[in-house]
Each structure stands twice: as C-alpha cells, then as structure tokens.
C-alpha cells in the first residue's frame, strides 16, 4: 500500500514487475535505470545468483517530481521468475500498489507465460488482493525476436480483461517507459479516488 507522509510531504508507491523466468523484468529495470537522470533515481539493487538470475528481487527507487506539493516516489521491484522461487515472489508482492506483467513473446514460452500469470493471480489472492482491482498493465516483451507470437494471440491468452498493454523490446528500451508510465498513472488515478 502506498505510504503518504505529511511530515516530509512525500508519497511512496510500490510497483512490482512479474512474469516468467528470463522474460526481461530485470532488463526493464536496467533500462529505466540507465535512462533516468541521476537526480531522479537511487541505487539499483539486484539480489542475483552468480549467473545473474534474480534470486530475491531487484529494486530501483525513482523520484518523479511533485504533485500538489508532494514528492512522488515510485519503488520498482522485480520478482524472481523461476518457478521454484515462489515463496520469495509472495513476499515481494506485499504492499504492492501496481503490477506490470511482463510476457515473453516467444512461442515456446507461451505455457510459461500462462503459468506465471495464474501464479500471479493466486499469490495476490493469498495476500488478499484482486488483480482485477489493482492498477495493472501488461507488456509483451521480445517483440524483435523472429519466433514472436502475434500480439493478437498474446492478448487473447494473457490479457482477457483488456488492461492497457504494450509491445516492447526491453534490451533496446522500446516500450519500457510507456509501460512504466501507464502503470504509474493508474496508481495515481487510484490514489485520487482515495481508495
């Protein structure tokens, strides 16, 4: 849940990037980190294995500017995508304000995408959240690869509720900021409603 601090006039929100292993969650954060002005970002932390697979989470704090005199900060987290890290994924979802689901467009990853999305719904439910009520966007990553499934098909399988979705190639940065902006905007609109 977002944290509003009247004393320091700050508002902090938590965004979690979710998706199957090797879909590009960490790459999304790395691109945001690389392209953000130094004064607007903190240190990026990656708790990864020696082979650079996410072990616990990546973390990137961003300060976007002010709204009505409140400094607006977003804390970006990724989960470890590999199936057997489910216990860690559950922990990272605690206190989430918005979700980016990153899908791997490659044909052979379709099953992994579906499994990960089911896992997201299930883990959220366990914590008392409903994905359909949270600020939530979908990103179809790796659009540049030759074996990418057509977007219509991905949409049919992975975005039945028709939330905002984006095509991306996180390694070149295409679509990364569009995705982030969309989820941040949904979170702020949600805050506006006062929940």
């Amino acid at each position: 849940m977002s944290f509003i601090n009247y004393a320091s006039r700050e508002i902090n929100c938590k965004i979690v990037y979710y998706g199957p292993g090797l879909c590009g969650k960490t790459t999304n954060l790395q691109h945001v980190y690389a392209k953000t002005a130094p004064e607007a970002k903190g240190k990026m932390i990656s708790l990864a294995t020696e082979t650079e697979r996410t072990l616990f989470f990546d973390f990137l704090p961003l300060a976007l500017g002010e709204i009505r005199g409140f400094k607006t900060r977003f804390h970006l987290y990724t989960v470890p995508g590999q199936v057997f890290y489910d216990a860690s994924r559950k922990l990272i979802l605690k206190g989430v304000d918005g979700i980016v689901y990153v899908a791997d467009s490659q044909e052979e990853r379709m099953d992994a995408n579906i499994e990960s999305l089911d896992n997201l719904r299930h883990n959220l439910k366990e914590q008392g959240y409903d994905l359909d009520k949270l600020p939530y966007v979908v990103q179809y990553n790796k659009r540049d690869l030759p074996n990418a499934v057509p977007v219509e098909e991905l949409r049919r399988e992975l975005n039945p509720t028709n939330v905002p979705d984006f095509e991306a190639c996180a390694s070149t940065g295409e679509g990364v900021f569009e995705t982030l902006k969309a989820v941040a905007k949904l979170i702020l609109v949600d805050l506006k409603k006062g929940r």
Partner: peptide, 14 residues
C-alpha cells in the same frame, strides 16, 4: 490531498 489532482497534474509528472 490527492482527491483533487487532475489528469494534467499526472501527465506533467511524465
């Protein structure tokens, strides 16, 4: 404080 923010306020952030 956020009940009165407008779409413009949000757009300006980005």
């Amino acid at each position: 404080p956020f009940a009165e923010i407008t779409d413009d306020d949000i757009d300006n952030l980005f």
